[in-house]
Design a protein around this nucleic acid. Structure first.
Length: 280
DNA sequence: TTATTTAACTTACCCGTGAG
DNA sequence: CTCACGGGTAAGTTAAATAA
């Protein structure tokens, strides 16, 4: 296996690396890289990304090329008068695959945390319906029967008929999430909170709106994910397949969050306008 | 090994568009 | 007009890569 001394064309100050020829993006070039000196090729780097690099030299002794890369880097740095240790990585180890399992299990832990039940309970059952002793109907019991928990252990209940109607009316997960929000939150709550309560970085002076009720929010998001088939953690045993599953789940989660954020923003905007009209 | 740097990912926010 | 959504921004957080 031969090594390539690479001059990264997009890097300033100039940086150099020694890479194995199997990092050439174009696999057909890997077997015979001898003609590549002086040419610019795409080199695979981190996280599946590739960058253009000029091939300066080819050799089988990695050490020699690394020393050369160091010298070039020092020279480049002094020319640019920039304090820089500008030699990018040597040959990377093959421990990357080992890391994947860690990543997957870490994702699972995150998921577990996201699904953690909260102690927020809403729509608590009215006590007034309690039936007296005897053979009369227990209304509280009847009332409870009609309600369903949106997501297991979420403590968020709503009439099953409402849920059924919302499901029928919602053809997409983002719409389902929005409609559930409308059902579970008042206009006041929606217009005075943000989804996660995080600070807005785009506008430093802005006071961040508080986070909306976490219990109901998570119940909605988890319910919609479940409806989309993302409830159960991956069990295929196939690391790659699990990765795809988690990625798809993450994308859906992002879409839902984005849509809900936008819903709250639009409600907020509307309320600000109506207040303004009230005042003037 | 630990510390530092770098890259990717998030999230609130803004704007425009298009369907109904 | 309302609603849904895509594209984009800034800068904070997180995770990975690299240096020491």
């Amino acid at each position: 296996m031969s090594y390539l001394l690479i001059d990264w064309v997009d890097e300033l100050p100039k940086t150099y690396s020694v890479v194995l020829c199997n990092r050439l993006e174009d696999e057909s070039l890997r077997s015979d890289p001898s003609k590549l000196v002086g040419k610019t090729v795409q080199i695979l780097w981190n996280r599946g990304k590739s960058y253009p690099g000029l091939v300066l030299k080819i050799g089988t002794d990695e050490e020699v090329l690394v020393r050369e890369a160091d010298e070039l880097a020092i020279k480049a740095a002094s020319e640019n008068q920039v304090v820089s240790t500008s030699r990018r990585g040597k040959k990377r180890g093959a421990d990357r695959a080992d890391k994947i399992e860690e990543i997957v299990s870490a994702s699972l832990r995150l998921e577990e945390e996201a699904n953690r039940p909260t102690d927020t309970t809403i729509n608590s059952i009215d006590e007034v319906g309690t039936a007296p002793e005897g053979d009369s109907i227990n209304y509280e019991e009847k009332y409870r029967e009609l309600k369903v928990e949106l997501y297991p252990d979420s403590g968020v209940f709503l009439p099953s008929s409402d849920l059924a109607a919302i499901k029928i009316a919602s053809n997409k997960p983002t719409v389902l999430a929005r409609n559930l929000f409308r059902r579970l939150f008042s206009i006041e709550e929606m217009s005075s909170h943000s989804l996660f309560g995080k600070k807005c970085n785009a506008n430093q002076g802005q006071v961040p709106l508080p986070e909306i009720d976490v219990g109901r929010r998570n119940a909605v998001i988890n319910y919609v994910l479940k409806e989309e088939g993302f409830d159960a953690p991956p069990t295929t045993g196939n690391i790659e397949a699990d990765g795809i599953f988690l990625k798809a789940k993450k994308t859906t989660h992002k879409e839902i969050s984005k849509s809900l954020t936008e819903l709250l923003r639009q409600e907020h905007k509307q309320r600000v306008i109506s207040n303004y009209r009230l005042v003037t």
